[in-house]
Design a binder for these strands. Structure first.
Length: 562
DNA sequence: AACGGAATAG
DNA sequence: CTATTCCGTT
């Protein structure tokens, strides 16, 4: 089971796919921005400002220049760079702070990057000016409205729906159902929502899944629980597996404990292939030491297979002018199989209707839907509520609509499977299904999740199978997206509504999500890499990560070598 | 200044 | 896919 090879992965690859991780080969703009932000040296050109995640580019030209240098694109300029930033809007990595020149904001509220568990964007604490990272006072912490799924959704996820995702989701909601049993979500919240361990069974060494989101990822709904690096976690859990990189995490934790010894760098060349050491990339970066420093760029010596892309919802502009019609039809079809959802997506615009059968777990249903509505209605509150409070949730099951378009290439597996869009759902269901059989108990990891199998086969996808009706119910999508943020911002600053923007996204989202959902499996499927969830900004705890941050911070910004 | 479509490189 | 380029609009 834990064989190093592909199988052993404790976690889904996507979980750690750092494609973009700091050391990874091709740096992405947002990483770069993050790097600059964390370095004081650049505070003259770019710095945190305002709310959590908000930063201002003080010297656009310089930033562009730096970026260009990094990418070896001498012709880079702010106009171009900004275009790239604009693409992030759709990906929800960033958004523009309206009214403020050169000011953008990371959507960190909802997301935590797997690769940057310790991200502190604001670490600013140390830095006077950059302090803003923390959400305003942390008073209102909003959770993960954005669907984790969105964030998480990566094609790969699908492949390995591991628990991670499910866990994450649950965490997001604050619920930990027992994985072993059916996956029924508990109707009510457990008192111990965040316990690091779900009920997971498997005490054994093989236990997978520890929901440890690790301190790094704090997705816990409850503030206090959030990131406590409990010893238990660290050792046992990590050891077992879960975390992204057990080892790394371990080190990570240790680091907290023993600041003096930065472990991560310990592995110069780790074997690359292991599925499990994903995070190492990030951590492995430089120790920061002091040494001589010359070779920073190499960090990524190993060609790690993982990649990590972010971006959940791409755009589906495909319809544009020509084939707009296509989309509709396809979606409808897909919905069909779910059975319960009748809604066809054809376009049920407003109303969410959809009671659908709740069948067993009514609670879980989802909210998904539709974008437009969301946007239109803005139920922000709900969203939140959904997540945290189980009490009120509306569920619908309509998400069925999804387009199968994907790019033609992908998705062989199920032509019509629908659930994809909700990766989430899939995840959920996945566990549920399998467990029943013998696996549940434990044979392998004890967890019900089919880890290995997934890899190659999408089979699980079978969701749709007739018998499996249950799959349906589980989807829970929190759709909130960042609208909240925007709102918040709006409050804070006056920005007008960006409806259009939002709207647009909404549309796109819908379409895209679905499109990608399953489909993405293919190559890159995995885009979303960020793990969504908010960062609990509890100031107190954050500090621990500081070191790590620093370490990561070291990423090499400058690579002169072009 | 900012947005976003379109084409395109890799 | 992501980013770069180019460019017309707001």
């Amino acid at each position: 089971m834990k064989t190093p090879g592909d199988t052993g992965f404790a976690f889904p690859d996507w979980a750690y796919k750092p494609e973009s991780s700091p050391g990874s080969r091709q740096i992405q703009l947002w990483h770069f921005i993050l790097e600059l932000l964390r370095k004081e040296e650049y505070h003259d050109v770019i710095a945190w400002q305002g709310d959590y995640g908000e930063f201002v580019i003080k010297d656009p030209d310089e930033v562009a220049r730096l970026w260009g240098a990094r990418k070896c694109k001498p012709q880079m300029n702010y106009d171009k760079l900004s275009r790239a930033l604009r693409y992030y809007y759709n990906k929800r990595i960033l958004h523009k702070t309206k009214g403020k020149r050169f000011t953008y904001k990371f959507n960190f509220n909802k997301l935590v990057l797997v690769n940057y568990p310790f991200i502190d964007m604001g670490s600013g604490r140390g830095v006077p000016q950059s302090a803003p990272p923390v959400p305003s006072g942390g008073t209102h912490f909003r959770f993960p409205p954005s669907t984790p799924s969105e964030v998480l959704s990566s094609s790969e996820e699908l492949r390995s729906p591991g628990m991670f995702s499910s866990v994450a989701r649950r965490m997001a909601r604050g619920i930990y159902p027992n994985t072993a049993g059916l996956a029924r979500p508990a109707p009510r919240v457990h008192p111990e929502p965040l316990s690091p361990f779900p009920v997971s069974p498997l005490p054994g060494p093989g236990g997978l899944l520890a929901p440890t989101l690790s301190p790094a990822l704090s997705m816990t709904p409850t503030p206090h629980l959030s990131y406590t690096p409990s010893p238990s976690l660290s050792s046992p859990m990590m050891g077992s597996h879960f975390s992204f990189n057990p080892e790394d995490m371990k080190h990570y934790l240790q680091a907290h404990t023993h600041p003096t010894a930065p472990p991560w760098r310990s592995r110069p060349c780790i074997h690359l292939h292991g599925p499990h050491h994903a995070l190492s990339h990030s951590l492995s970066q430089q120790p920061g030491g002091g040494g001589g420093g010359g070779e920073e760029q190499q960090q990524q010596q190993h060609p790690s297979p993982f990649k990590f892309k972010l971006q959940p919802p791409p755009l589906g502009r495909k319809q544009r002018e020509a084939g707009s019609s296509l989309a509709a039809p396809s979606s409808s079809q897909s919905s069909s199989f779910t059975g319960s959802g009748q809604i066809n997506n054809a376009v049920p615009p407003k109303i969410k209707v959809e009671p659908i059968s709740d069948i067993e777990s009514e609670e879980e249903v989802e909210v998904t839907d539709i974008s437009e509505e969301d946007e239109l209605h803005h139920n922000d509150e709900d969203d939140e509520g959904d997540i945290f409070t189980p009490t009120a949730r509306h569920h619908h099951q309509l998400n069925n609509h999804h387009r199968a378009n994907g790019n033609g290439s992908s998705l062989p597996a199920a032509p019509h499977s629908n659930l994809e869009d909700e990766d989430d759902e899939e995840v959920f269901k996945t566990p549920a299904t399998p467990p029943i059989g013998g696996g549940g108990g434990g044979s392998g990891g004890g967890l019900p999740f089919p880890l290995m199998g997934l890899k190659s086969e999408p089979g699980q996808a079978a969701p749709i199978s007739p018998g499996g009706t249950r799959c349906i119910p589980l989807k829970l999508r929190f759709k909130r997206r960042w609208s909240e943020d925007q709102k918040m911002e709006a409050d804070g600053e006056r920005d007008e509504a960006e409806d259009k923007k939002v709207r647009a996204e909404g549309e796109e989202e819908q379409a895209e999500e679905k499109g990608r959902g399953t489909g993405a499996v293919e190559n890159g499927g995995g885009r979303g890499v960020i793990l969504g969830l908010m960062l609990p900004p509890p100031p107190t705890q954050r500090r621990a990560s500081s070191e790590l941050q620093r370490a990561t911070a070291q990423l090499s910004l400058e690579n002169t070598g072009c």
